[in-house]
């Protein structure tokens, strides 16, 4: 007997609470046969359009299944949705939406930044190691004692920077609109190379 969507939510959420907490979320991931070290848990949150990392509200849960046209809960259907999203974000524009959503999702409530540890965790999961500038940029900011977190503009610009600037910085100009932190990164890296 397949569970209704609502019944399934109650199975993972805290008793008498209208949301699923990180511990419930981890059980869900386990049931789906996924690993926390991959992009898939993030895609699952993206599926639910979660506002906060590790938390899924009942409203988000119901709405997401409803939108996907799934009437009864099944592990197979949910896994299929994740696969669909994985294909979906291969499109640059869709990926950008996902990436920008990640910032608000990952930042602590009432904060305007994400701390470096979270940044590193996210970036290593969502990007291939070969993605230009991501790994060197992480290395750079870890050396900067005054950089403790990234704000929204720095986060969003990082993706654009990685997408448009060649690995050798040949098409980089310090007079473009990049945030100062990315300018520092570029200046530092090119200086080290020389």
């Amino acid at each position: 007997m397949r569970k209704t969507i609502k019944e399934a939510f109650q199975q993972y959420s805290e008793p008498d609470e209208k949301h699923m907490s990180p511990s419930g979320f981890e059980i869900l991931i386990e049931d789906l046969g996924l690993s926390m070290e991959t992009i898939e848990p993030l895609l699952l949150c993206w599926f639910f359009k979660c506002l906060r990392m590790g938390f899924i509200s009942e409203e988000e849960w119901l709405l997401a299944f409803d939108k996907a046209g799934i009437k009864k809960f099944s592990v197979k259907d949910l896994n299929k949705q994740i696969k669909l999203l994985a294909i979906d974000i291969k499109d640059k524009q869709n990926f950008k939406c996902f990436y920008n959503w990640l910032f608000n999702f990952a930042k602590a409530p009432n904060s305007k930044t994400i701390d470096l540890e979270t940044v590193e965790g996210l970036l290593s999961v969502i990007f291939e190691p070969s993605k230009p500038h991501i790994t060197p940029f992480l290395g750079f900011i870890k050396d900067q004692s005054h950089v403790a977190a990234l704000n929204k503009d720095q986060w969003q610009s990082l993706l654009d920077f990685s997408n448009t600037i060649n690995s050798d910085f040949s098409n980089y100009s310090s007079e473009s609109a990049w945030p100062v932190l990315l300018d520092l990164y570029a200046e530092n890296t090119t200086r080290e190379k020389n």
Binding site: D153, Q156, S176, A177, D183
Partner: peptide, 22 residues
């Protein structure tokens, strides 16, 4: 100037456009 722009983005006086980062 770029430092000032950064500061103003941070203070929500201005934002970078979604479609064009310039």
């Amino acid at each position: 100037i770029k430092k000032a722009i950064d500061a103003l983005i941070d203070k929500d006086y201005i934002e970078r456009s979604e479609d064009n980062n310039e």
